[in-house]
């Protein structure tokens, strides 16, 4: 049952997995990667573990998984007896998957902006920020509609892996030069998320609420 996470403290994608492991109360071994400046994730040795040269990677019982969203699905599927983190009913399963794909897709523009500002990656920063703001607005509109309906989470009445997957790069927006001024529903959702039992902060996300 040993779980091993190939991890980097400052990675928002690795943070998603650490958050989920924490919410589920799971022990795990951390392999600290020298992502920057060592670029260990692009080394030939690590390419044998993940040919895409990306972290996080999670290993458990001979299973080796890449992609933060896939790992969240695996952890909820295997370790959440309540079934609430990954609901299987038709009303919630599809929407959770939809927002999970959004977290790994459109929302990653905010990660790109952060890699540019924090680690000096060469990319079109204005384009990255424009796409990130568009993604934030889509989620803010959704969460505003949820507030109006009397709800707090992205899907259903309890937090799911969709919330876990979306939280890090929304919360870390400032590292990519993106403010939270235009997203009141995102701010309230983030505050609720940070108040969850077993929530852990990371560098760039305030510990105190």
């Amino acid at each position: 049952m040993a779980i091993r996470l190939y991890d980097y403290s400052l990675s928002g994608s690795c943070y998603k997995v650490r958050l989920m492991l924490g919410f589920l109360g799971l022990e795990y071994e951390r392999v600290q990667m020298n992502f920057y400046p060592g670029r260990q994730h692009r080394s030939p040795e690590f390419r044998e573990i993940n040919p895409l040269g990306q972290i996080p990677v999670l290993e458990e019982d001979g299973l080796r998984l890449r992609d933060a969203q896939a790992i969240l699905c695996h952890l909820a599927n295997s370790h959440d007896a309540s079934g609430e983190w990954l609901p299987r009913d038709a009303e919630r399963f599809g929407p959770v998957m939809m927002w999970l794909m959004f977290a790994g897709g459109e929302l990653m523009a905010a990660s790109a902006a952060r890699l540019h500002d924090a680690l000096g990656y060469e990319l079109d920063i204005e384009e990255a920020r424009r796409k990130a703001r568009a993604a934030f607005r889509v989620l803010d509109d959704h969460l505003t509609a949820r507030e109006i309906a009397g709800a707090r989470w992205i899907v259903g009445d309890t937090p799911t892996i969709a919330d876990v997957a979306c939280f890090p790069y929304v919360a870390l927006a400032g590292d990519g030069g993106l403010g939270h001024e235009e997203y009141p529903a995102l701010r309230n959702w983030m505050r609720d998320f940070r108040r969850l039992p077993r929530f852990r902060a990371m560098s760039g996300i305030p510990e105190f609420i």
């Binding site: 507030e147 403010g179 939270h180 001024e181 009141p184 701010r187 309230n188 609420i209």
Partner: peptide
């Protein structure tokens, strides 16, 4: 500058 309803109790929020 904001809707009262969206400023949660015990919260601080950025506005420009």
């Amino acid at each position: 500058v904001a809707l009262d309803d969206q400023i949660q109790a015990a919260s601080s929020n950025p506005v420009i």
